[in-house]
């Protein structure tokens, strides 16, 4: 990775969930770690998220959801990214995601799921070492 170019991350809240404490705290930690962070705000459809990701030319998308709608919305984001040929964007997720759902989400292309209690440094490190650049 070229160290002079900052990693660009889109932190997104898909669906109708209003719990954004986690998303905002992660966004700030990534920024403090030297990344460029764009936060979408609440109530984003998968279409809106993919559009922002392409427009902002991000290296990584972080999806946060606590409402239980992840099985409907996360794979949809992956599908749209593939359609746009943006498979190189690293996508990670977080929130209240039951363990049993994780294999299916990974199969859909979500690289990693960070549950409650994950240290911020782990997320920073993961993104740093896994962005495809």
């Amino acid at each position: 990775m070229n160290s002079s170019k900052k990693i660009r991350v889109l932190i997104a809240k898909p669906g109708l969930d209003g719990h954004d404490r986690g998303a905002k705290v992660v966004a700030r930690a990534l920024r403090d770690a030297g990344m460029e962070v764009i936060y979408t705000g609440l109530r984003q459809t998968p279409e809106m998220i993919v559009e922002s990701a392409l427009q902002e030319d991000v290296d990584c998308i972080g999806l946060s959801i606590l409402s239980g709608a992840h099985m409907a919305l996360f794979p949809r984001v992956m599908e749209l990214l593939r359609k746009e040929g943006a498979n190189d964007i690293l996508v990670v997720g977080g929130g209240i995601i039951p363990e049993d759902d994780i294999p299916e989400l990974k199969k859909a292309g979500i690289a990693e799921i960070f549950g409650p209690g994950t240290p911020l440094e782990d997320i920073v490190e993961y993104i740093r070492t896994h962005v495809k650049k």
């Binding site: 669906g15 109708l16 969930d17 109530r43 409402s67 239980g68 709608a69 409907a72």
Partner: peptide, 21 residues
Amino acid sequence: LPTQIGYDSDNPMSHGEVGKV
């Protein structure tokens, strides 16, 4: 969440959220 945000269950914005929280 659709109920809390004033969407019917058949609104496209409700997809995936119906009956969840």
